[in-house]
Design a protein around this nucleic acid. Sequence first.
DNA 1: TACCTATAGATCGGCAGCCAACCTATTGGC
DNA 2: GCCAATAGGTTGGCTGCCGATCTATAGGTA
Lengths: 113, 113
Amino acid sequence: MKASAVRGHLDGLLLSVLESGPLHGYAVITAVQERSNGVLELRKGTIYPALNKLERLGLLRSVWEADGERRRRCYELTDAGRRSLAEERSVWREFTAAIGSVLEPAPGPGHAT
Amino acid sequence: MKASAVRGHLDGLLLSVLESGPLHGYAVITAVQERSNGVLELRKGTIYPALNKLERLGLLRSVWEADGERRRRCYELTDAGRRSLAEERSVWREFTAAIGSVLEPAPGPGHAT
DNA sequence: TACCTATAGATCGGCAGCCAACCTATTGGC
DNA sequence: GCCAATAGGTTGGCTGCCGATCTATAGGTA
């Protein structure tokens, strides 16, 4: 399953894997993949623009880390990012509850008793 | 919440509300709205093309019902539609499980047992 | 030394899918 | 006669993820 399916919830995923500590872009991809048991395969063309957008919005902050000659851009949650993550989680629950109640209506004990 | 949020799952919603019997387009909108407790507000510009597509795919069949001078197009699930609905539900569960495990990781009792 | 692959960052055009805006027509209230 | 609600429909447009493509370093290997 690729990110096209997660349309609208990508930001939440990115914020979520950064909650436990800073990661660089490439590691974000593998973190999402691992935490979803290999189901979610985000692409570079998907996350780099998304991470940049989140930084522009002030939800992330980034620092260039030097690993020898190699440079890696590490992203970290800001306070606003943490608040946004909480909000995304709340929206996610509302969203799944709404779709779920249409897609899989409770079989209902409604046959009287 | 509008259908832009349900991107990719709209077909499942439509098939689902038609599971318990035929409905015309306008009634599909209200059915989805009711079953989601008013949360999901689909638009006409969203569902009519979608219902047509589902009929083209053989998942629905439609009949024009005459209510006096008024004509209403009623949609009904086909066998293929029922199979597709089952598939959509399965995809939905996989999808929510995947996003959920990234977005709200189990706090984990992982301290051994 | 040269070459290949994995890692790492980034950009951009393309496309899929939902939506707002718009049009037509009937029914019913005032 | 007029307006709102109900009912069906089309079309251009926007948003957001993806594939393709580019650059560069590190490490293996021959």
